[in-house]
Design a protein around this nucleic acid. Structure first.
Lengths: 137, 137
DNA sequence: TATTGTTATACTCTATAACTATA
DNA sequence: TATAGTTATAGAGTATAACAATA
């Protein structure tokens, strides 16, 4: 079955990419999860539970995660005017700045791989990955 | 730059794949790292330092990791006949069996994605990923 | 009562530093 | 002296259970 070859390629690729993300994150004292949070909150605020569901984590885990990021001045908590129980989380200017820097570094880190493809292959790969990921999303 | 679209697709794909691996691992009480160790030791034994370098972890981290896997009966430590300082690590039959089961589950978990491609696209994606990963490896 | 979030607790993963044993 | 591994320690990430506040 050639499915195994594809699975192996996907898993290997993923470990490469996650390795780069982990390394870059570590250079900024950010875990993979913190990195994801920065990515998610880059263009919108979210409530704690929303973040937890999105990340597939328990709410209690988010409390600690946000605590540490807040203490570092990357995120901030805010009251939600519509529901007194809800806590909204959003990025500070420092958090946004860090997210931008990380984004650039990730692009650079992946460029050795993406540069091995010519323009046509480049677009082909995007199309195939998006097709495999599926959905209109 | 279309590089960003490719980077986004690669990162999204990687999070999908790692999510599947994490979920399947968790169902068997295995962390992502434990899963990698099982994958590595599937077809060969290795010394502690060798594993640490391969995984990009400190030796001391490996000690704990192997401790726990050994206590569960998945891995075993053995003396190296050539060098008294070296500790070899290898899989037990139970570890091999678990690795096989996990492999099948990962393939199943990724099949919704891989099934969205026809045979030609399938092979194209394998080729493009391997090319991007680079090297003869 | 149900939902949102935090806190207390416990375990795993991780690194650094100090140590033991072997080379 | 140098290398291979372990242990002690400490911090982050994670989940479960119990709790407080709000709906």
């Amino acid at each position: 079955m050639s499915t195994d070859a594809l699975m192996d390629a996907l898993v290997r690729t993923s470990f490469e990419v996650m390795g780069a993300l982990t390394r870059i994150g570590a250079a900024h004292d950010l875990s993979l999860t913190q990195l994801r949070v920065l990515g998610i909150l880059r263009d919108r605020r979210a409530r704690m539970t929303e973040l937890a569901v999105f990340l597939g984590l328990d709410k209690s885990t988010l409390s600690g995660l946000v605590d540490r990021a807040e203490k570092r001045g990357l995120l901030a908590r805010g009251k939600n005017p519509d529901d007194g129980r809800v806590v909204d989380v959003y990025m500070t200017p420092a958090g946004l700045e860090l997210a931008d820097r990380v984004y650039v570094e990730v692009r650079q880190a992946l460029s050795p791989a993406t540069d091995r493809l010519d323009a046509v292959e480049h677009d082909q790969l995007i199309r195939l990955l998006e097709q495999a990921l599926g959905g209109p999303r």
